[in-house]
Design a protein around this nucleic acid. Structure first.
Lengths: 219, 219
DNA sequence: TCGGATCATGAGAGTGCTCTCATCCCCTTC
DNA sequence: GAAGGGGATGAGAGCACTCTCATGATCCGA
């Protein structure tokens, strides 16, 4: 029986979270105030905190910082609005374990709550990076110079291959087999096309053409 | 430095696996024969085995069974053809840890290899079931009476909600908020439509209509 | 500088997913 | 058995993704 602290000021969303988590067997306590939330998280024995960043009064990130600096290691999942991307990154760097972007499906939150309660110690590797390019393996998005970019499935896999072979020149055949599978038509120029797509999204110079050889990610 | 035993008779695929795994820092040994493979897996100190089911001579499943009955717990990832579904299930039940369906992208295999090498003890929960319906959380497919069914993202989430609330009657509002999010238009009949899609795929009688209340999964 | 090889890219076809809308069906109740 | 409400479903719009093809641009060696 896991205890979850919900920190959310908007009544409709708070109730949505309470109902959903309780229906799934969790015990919840809700606070709509940053100061109270800090006390509860510090004093009470909660197993996890769901924390909205957009609180009036004491800000969510401040709550997080205070709880952490009091030495508490309980897992924290942040709820943030879709567009404050810098805040999100800052949240993760300052000690949040995960985040969900509003508006979200309940099952999405639930899955992350379960993950964080399951493996107490193992923080999953969700970020791959090289230079100014960061790839979030979970959300399938990339961050380039601080801006988030949405990627399609193919684009994502291709960038993942580049990031897992940093600086290396990858031939079209290698990319084909890694991204498309081992029995794909070798006459296709689909690799070129997707390099083009990635360049459009990541920036022109991020992927270098090595004439006669293939492509390489610049770092 | 992890050692991987590749058991694959088709030269092209064997080479594809060798190259890919080596490029990612693994040490590989390849065997194209079931008898030799059993010996290697039993004697040698491998950290993981990639095992093709479609071997000539001694069959892959037999290899797996023999290795297991010799008391070895090394992680085994099975490669199987797309359509022998019963074999696949049987493989998992007889002691394989994971499987990949041919033809596969290399990154897919790689991800699973990494997972199996990371958490030595924790078998991830990847199957949800109720009665004759089994949902594979990883591949986003459902098995109904032994047949695999492909699901779209929405269909998948919806079935997941049903399976996580076994036998329970779920209102349209509950389904809307769980599957579509908390701020979705309540006047939509999209829930009805997706129940229809699921029925088409799972079988007419799998989801019961409770007039005036909502829907429930039959078990 | 010229020409061929190599690469880049716009256009567009095909597909699957999601959702709305309107109509049809069926169940219940009187 | 008729009426009304709730549910089922076909049609189709809109969209994103994937990939091919053809053309245009660029590079590089002779």
């Amino acid at each position: 029986m896991n205890r979850i602290l919900i920190v959310e000021d908007e009544p409709r969303l708070a109730s949505f979270l309470e109902k959903g988590l309780r229906a799934n067997g969790f015990v919840t306590t809700t606070s709509r105030d940053g100061y109270e939330a800090t006390m509860l998280a510090t004093d009470g024995d909660f197993d996890l905190m769901v924390l909205d960043l957009g609180l009036p009064g004491k800000d969510g990130l401040t709550v997080l910082r205070d709880v952490r600096s009091a030495g508490h290691r309980l897992p924290v999942i942040i709820l943030s609005a879709r567009d404050d991307t810098d805040v999100k990154v800052a949240g993760l760097e300052r000690g949040a374990d995960d985040y969900v972007t509003k508006p979200f499906r309940f099952e999405e939150l639930l899955a992350r709550v379960r993950v964080r309660l399951r493996d107490g110690g193992t923080p999953e590797r969700t970020l791959l990076e090289s230079g100014a390019v960061v790839l979030d393996l979970r959300t399938r998005r990339a961050r380039v110079d601080g801006d988030w970019v949405e990627l399609s499935a193919r684009e994502f896999t291709m960038l993942e291959v580049f990031l897992r072979h940093p600086g290396q020149v990858l031939s079209r055949e290698q990319l084909l087999s890694h991204v498309w599978g081992y029995d794909h038509d070798p006459g296709s120029n689909v690799v070129d096309v997707y390099v083009g797509y990635l360049r459009r999204k990541l920036g022109r110079d991020r992927i270098a053409t090595v004439r006669g050889m293939g492509y390489a990610l610049r770092s």
